[in-house]
């Protein structure tokens, strides 16, 4: 991590990140990966999001699914923690609520591997500015 010395430098980092250049340099191809985001704010963690995230990361690796699992902040659905967002290559992302280890296992087996939706979907009910 070296210092960013100008607005132009900052924009370069942004563009590299946005175009996926950074991840390609690390040998990842975001477009063809399964992307899982786990809401890891205080209330998510209190409901077991950490365990869910560890399980998902480990299970995907063991089961040979090319995926990136990341932590993110609050998605707003306290009533349905732990919450995760799954994006399969080429399709829209889907948010699932109440994802304990059992549910995570079902999501991996059915949705991530087979494209079959499972109970627990939370329709995203907000618009986010870019």
């Amino acid at each position: 991590m070296s210092k960013i010395k100008s607005l132009a430098d900052l924009k370069k980092i942004r563009d590299e990140k946005v175009s996926g250049l950074q991840s390609r340099e690390r040998g990842e191809d975001a477009e063809n990966l399964v992307q899982v985001k786990v809401a890891m704010a205080t209330c998510g963690i209190a409901s077991g999001a950490k365990e869910t995230m560890e399980f998902i990361a480990e299970a995907l690796e063991k089961r040979g699914v090319d995926a990136v699992v990341t932590q993110v902040g609050c998605m707003g659905y306290c009533y349905a923690e732990p919450t995760i967002e799954v994006k399969l290559p080429g399709s829209e992302s889907v948010v699932f609520g109440g994802v304990n280890i059992e549910k995570a296992d079902e999501i991996i087996e059915k949705y991530i591997k087979g494209g079959e939706l499972v109970d627990g979907i939370i329709p995203v009910n907000y618009e986010t500015i870019d």
Binding site: A41, G73, C74, G76, N125, E127, T128
Partner: peptide, 19 residues
Amino acid sequence: GFYKKQLRIALRNCGVIDP
């Protein structure tokens, strides 16, 4: 956008980026 009664400005990155 209309059906989504919510608009995330202050929370624009929450749940989107790794903090």
